[in-house]
Write a protein that binds this DNA or RNA. Structure first.
Lengths: 340, 340
DNA sequence: TTGAAAGCGCTAACAA
DNA sequence: TTGTTAGCGCTTTCAA
């Protein structure tokens, strides 16, 4: 495809009348090479337009300095900050990243895992799709002792570090806040309950109710895929409920924002008739009116920690004892929930 | 790092008592290999846990079947649909993609370009950062005849296909619509005017004004980085203007949504006192109240076309005559601009 | 501090 | 239809 030939270390070696081995060493920061030799090599390399050949190097070294990332989707504020954090730490440590979206599909996640495996990534960071049933498709990584880290939407897998927030506690905090605001019939819009994040939030919801001696009513839990459509539909269900709920705690902002829109259309007053709390602190939460009370958690930091933990595992291949890293979250109170 | 040895085609060859070359051919869809031989090979490969070594293959073939993508940011709805489209087409054609965010920084864009160049991508798709002054950092790609395609935020560069919408026309449509709604003093919130997309939208704005014999007033153009902060600040500027503007056309939704919030806080009625049109049809445009009139354009399709055009260039390395591909856009009218 | 030489795993030209 | 063989460009061990 390319017309001009590639410049190799052999060409440099020849031009300088030294050996390729020396050139190879000079191009890196190999200890035990004379300073002026190194300078000569670097200069000549620049002059000749030398370009390091990653493949040859990877092939030889059997390591790629590349980290694979698989996420459900890129298009949320949360995810993009997570990935920015990962890229930052990775680059600082001389790693590249390959990003792959599963688009919430188990099938595509398998394909991504295979591709990244074949690309010989040195490590993998994953947040799983909503319908991923198990972690079998990552077996190949475990077999080859390629470190794998889950974040946010994690799977249980021994020896596999996970980075999460305390979803149970966050769900509790959110629900508790609604209760404190006088809500008694609180709908929970949940995601796929096979996912830790959504199961945890639901458990927190239950616990908060229990503490106030409010019986758990499964008919108030609407489990869906947390899309806009799902939120709209949830609103319709809520409107049909009798007696009408007086609160909503949703497992993400996107769905509940759509839900609020629909409810407002139907003439429901928020927070007057119905207090609302979301999850994620998506920028949208500051746009919807009334502004949405929501749970914030640190995406960038989560990404940075995931990447640095992974790189640690890659380099010190001894098994670290760290199994679960839990980051802080916080309830951000805005108007949508303030009934007092 | 990995403990177990890799299975190579030699191992398979040995196990089957055939030559490595045959194994290599069997593993692909090489024409002229007996069906049962091929079947044998594939079975044995599976049994032995063979894994294709991309590096060796790339090294040998001097091509990577990988496409590089550089974009300013991942976290917009538009960008994530673009990338989904690219991934789709790429995968269908046996290509992988490597995505890199410039985070709107020229410096980081250079770094990304270098990395992708060293990764020997077969082609590159770019939407440039807002402060990128020229395309010199892509020279290496041109020199090696590695096809490069710009989309959305493009640079002028002969021989380089660009995929865009008609920003001039879109800006015209948006402004024209506001004029039709009776606006006379229209503020334009613009991005960096060195970028084609923002320059074009401004030109369209000017043309629409001219057609109605409204003199162009530069003090009504607020050029910024189109972030939320920028929108908020724009609102403050607008509030100080005397006489007060009666319309806003913004080059993206994010900024103008923040701007609307601030204006509403200040008691301005939208669209009554001030009609608003955004750009992008971000999901947020359906959340803000009143819902935002905006320009929609097809992200997924743009991504698909970019990828397929690029792959075409890679494979048929003859220079296609296509220079610019212009996709359709449409004005989506919602309440924020309806003053009649 | 430098050099010689082997080989990472694969592919493709050529031969059979 | 299959096999032989020669590298792709780099790193690294061992020797000097």
């Amino acid at each position: 495809m390319s017309s001009s030939k590639e410049v190799t270390i052999y060409d440099i070696a020849e031009a300088l009348n030294i050996s390729p081995a020396t050139v190879s060493r000079g191009l890196k920061d190999h200890p035990g090479i004379r300073k002026d030799t190194k300078k000569k090599i670097l200069e000549m390399a620049r002059k000749m337009g030398y370009q390091h050949n990653t493949f040859a190097s990877n092939l030889r070294r059997k390591s790629t300095n590349t980290i694979g990332i698989i996420v459900p989707r890129l298009n949320s504020y949360f995810m993009s900050t997570v990935i920015a954090g990962m890229e930052k730490v990775a680059n600082e440590n001389g790693y590249n990243v390959i990003i792959s979206q599963s688009l919430e599909s188990y099938k595509k996640e398998i394909a991504s895992a295979n591709t990244l495996f074949n690309s010989r990534v040195d490590g993998l960071i994953v947040s799983v799709a909503s319908d991923t049933p198990d972690s079998d498709h990552f077996d190949m990584f475990f077999k080859k002792h390629i470190p794998l880290i889950f974040f946010d939407r994690v799977l249980e897998r021994p020896g596999c570090t996970t980075i999460i927030i305390d979803n149970h506690r966050a769900g509790y905090d959110a629900t508790r806040h609604l209760l404190d605001q006088g809500c008694r019939r609180i709908v929970h819009i949940a995601g796929n309950l096979n996912r830790n994040v959504y199961a945890g939030r639901l458990e927190g919801y239950k616990q908060a109710l229990q503490e106030r001696n409010i019986p758990y009513d499964p008919s108030l839990v609407i489990s869906c895929n947390l899309t806009e459509q799902c939120g709209t539909q949830a609103a319709r269900q809520i409107l049909e409920m009798n007696p009408r709920p007086d609160g909503i705690f949703a497992a993400n902002d996107t769905s509940v924002v759509a839900c609020m829109r629909e409810l407002k259309h139907a003439g429901i007053e928020i927070p007057g008739q119905l207090g609302v709390v979301g999850f994620n602190n998506d920028p949208i939460s500051k746009v919807i009116e009334p502004n949405l009370t929501t749970i914030n958690y640190p995406g960038q930091e989560m990404g940075e920690i995931a990447a640095s933990t992974l790189i640690n595992k890659i380099t010190k291949s001894g098994n670290s004892s760290l199994d679960t890293i839990v980051l802080r979250h916080e309830l951000i109170i805005r108007q949508s929930s303030l009934r007092k």
